[in-house]
Design a binder for these strands. Structure first.
Lengths: 155, 155
DNA sequence: GATGAAAGCCAGCATGA
DNA sequence: TCATGCTGGCTTTCATC
């Protein structure tokens, strides 16, 4: 199974949009050497097939007063295979990521807050979830790299 | 110190662009009830002040064959305060994030790979960095939430 | 800072290959 | 799946407030 549903042109377009999500369709067309209408059709198809899940501005969180990043391991009383705790954690806006892992702690959570005081309040929200047994937080001192993108290749 | 360099209108614009990075300037103007030219000036200024650091398409990495996410703790022989190891780690394309932390392991690294075999190759690259003493990897089974954005408020 | 007018440019669609 | 041509709407600049 699993026939490739995308070709080299798609990968080119994805890489361009991954680097600059606000580039005009006409500019993409110039870069890949195709007519704008053809490129637009590709982009729409990539969106429809959910290969492109959206576009977002990268906001400088430090400048916005969100200086603190932390990773919290969350231990639960939940039976394996249930993600209820994860869904509850995901509802908290300061929680950027929730991963269910194969490690010691079932959940690894990425949190962003104003300062340690705000972080404390967020961790209190974790504790308010009934199935949460314990948490273990690692504070980030410096972030060296933080991307979402990955230079895609044609295999 | 620290006079606010942005107002409520800026926060509105940032939230809109954080949610939909490809919305047209005219649509932002309609949403905030201002003239397009005024909004464009704001956006340009936010970009110049580096409050907006860029725009990116959110690519479905699973559909692109990058099914595996992992978090690796990296132990080093490096003196505290030096980020050379972090910079080396950041150069590896499969490494999405590098955080220097206050935890037991100096670095926490987020990795994305095709499969366990590809992950192994990436971890081998970590080992090739002279100052890396040891690594400890946690495999992600399911990602419940993965955002970058944060609903900004007017304090 | 914000506005409105004006020029050029782009998105989006229809059509044809 | 791509290219061409078209139209309405958009982006962007600038004089003005």
């Amino acid at each position: 199974m699993s026939k490739r549903t995308f070709d080299y042109l798609d990968i080119q377009i994805l890489n361009i949009l991954q680097e600059n999500g606000r580039i005009s369709n006409a500019d993409i067309a110039r870069k890949v050497g195709k007519a704008p209408s053809a490129v637009l059709e590709r982009v729409r198809k990539l969106e429809r097939k959910d290969l492109i899940q959206g576009y977002e501005a990268i906001v400088n969180h430090k400048a916005m007063g969100l200086a603190l990043t932390a990773f919290t391991q969350v231990y639960t009383d939940e039976p394996a295979g249930s993600f209820n705790t994860g869904r509850e954690l995901a509802k908290i806006p300061e929680v950027l990521e929730v991963h269910y892992t194969a490690g010691q702690a079932p959940y690894l959570v990425k949190v962003r807050a104003e300062d340690t005081e705000a972080l404390q309040k967020t961790l209190a929200k974790f504790g308010a979830i009934a199935s949460v047994r314990d948490t273990n937080t690692t504070i980030v001192l410096t972030t060296v790299k933080e991307t979402r993108g990955f230079p895609l290749q044609n295999d």
